[in-house]
């Protein structure tokens, strides 16, 4: 019997997918295992390590301890439940704040960089990449100096609020250059003809932007929203520097647990619970916007 012939150009899709799947799986094993240990430990009586698998039991104790503000089983509460809830709330404030500021500005600036003629446009676009390459830490002294100066005229009872705004804006500023770049790429893909079409149909520039262009760059907006949300959620140094010591986010809370020798004192599964909680919103948020990210619908425009 003749062996089955295949076209030279065609790669066997199924075999290809299988191979890809295996490679991705192997590459992800270290990550998956660590996350699994973290999450499972938060529901176990002790940290999961290889040798003690037989002695593990399921418990919600760690989560209760965490929300009671306790760090070990025996000790008294270091934080109140109210503190913990506030820290979680703070984390959301910073994350959504950074997300909103970044997404709004990057979407508008990306449109301008893609569509509008102005002097120094090309230079500005190149500068954006350079700006992104600057590590945020290296700017911290200047940003701090600016914070102290700008805080001066503000009445002291508003300082906490101001610190939040400052953290959000400063952290967003680090994200914006790259996100402008991303948004510019998405705007570039929308043909001029679609915009012209709407203008000819009688729409104003603003209306064209809002009703025609924005819906077409939804995937870009989703991507930028995710990235900036994650950046705000995980913001550590800026939060640590600018928020008053009484205000923490989950990131600084966990960092506090691990720093300054307290690691030896705390019950690690409680930290695992905090870590799991710290992961969750990112996962949930990602699953929400994922379908927008994958939705690229520029058909109906040939060219």
């Amino acid at each position: 019997m003749m062996p089955e012939t295949t076209d030279v150009e065609t790669i066997n899709r199924r075999r290809m997918n299988l191979a890809l799947g295996i490679v991705v799986l192997i590459a992800s094993i270290p990550i998956l295992v660590t996350y699994f240990i973290l999450m499972a430990s938060s529901f176990a009586n002790q940290m999961i390590t290889g040798s003690m698998v037989g002695q593990l039991t399921f418990t919600l104790k760690n989560w209760i301890l965490f929300f009671e503000g306790k760090l070990t089983v025996a000790s008294a509460a270091v934080y109140s439940t109210w503190d913990i809830l506030r820290y979680i709330f703070n984390t959301f404030i910073v994350a959504f704040g950074v997300m909103l500021v970044t997404t709004a500005l990057a979407t508008m600036a990306g449109y301008a960089c893609s569509r509008m003629k102005f002097k120094g446009r090309k230079f500005l676009i190149q500068l954006l990449i350079l700006l992104h390459a600057f590590p945020g830490v290296s700017l911290i002294i200047a940003v701090y100096a600016l914070y102290i100066f700008s805080k001066g005229p503000i009445p002291s009872q508003w300082w906490t609020l101001y610190a939040f705004i400052y953290v959000i804006v400063a952290r967003a500023a680090l994200e914006i250059p790259m996100d402008i770049w991303i948004m510019k790429g998405f705007f570039d893909k929308v043909p001029w003809e679609v915009e012209w079409s709407a203008l000819i149909d009688g729409a104003s520039r603003i209306k064209v932007w809002k009703d025609i262009i924005l819906p077409l760059v939804k995937p870009g907006i989703a991507a930028v929203a995710i990235f900036s949300f994650i950046a705000g959620w995980g913001a550590l140094i800026y939060v640590l520097v600018f928020l008053p010591p009484t205000e923490k986010t989950l990131a600084t809370y966990i960092a506090g647990l691990l720093a300054g020798g307290s690691l030896e004192v705390v019950h690690l599964p409680v930290v695992a619970a905090a870590g799991t909680l710290y992961l969750l919103p990112t996962l949930i948020f990602f699953s929400f916007v994922r379908r927008y990210m994958l939705q690229t619908s520029l058909s109906g425009i040939k060219g």
Partner: peptide, 20 residues
């Protein structure tokens, strides 16, 4: 005058339909 004020209908080579 703007395109809208001229009241023209234009069919583009790539049709430029609103995909959404």
């Amino acid at each position: 005058l703007t395109p809208a004020e001229r009241n023209v209908g234009l069919v583009f080579q790539n049709y430029a339909l609103y995909p959404h």
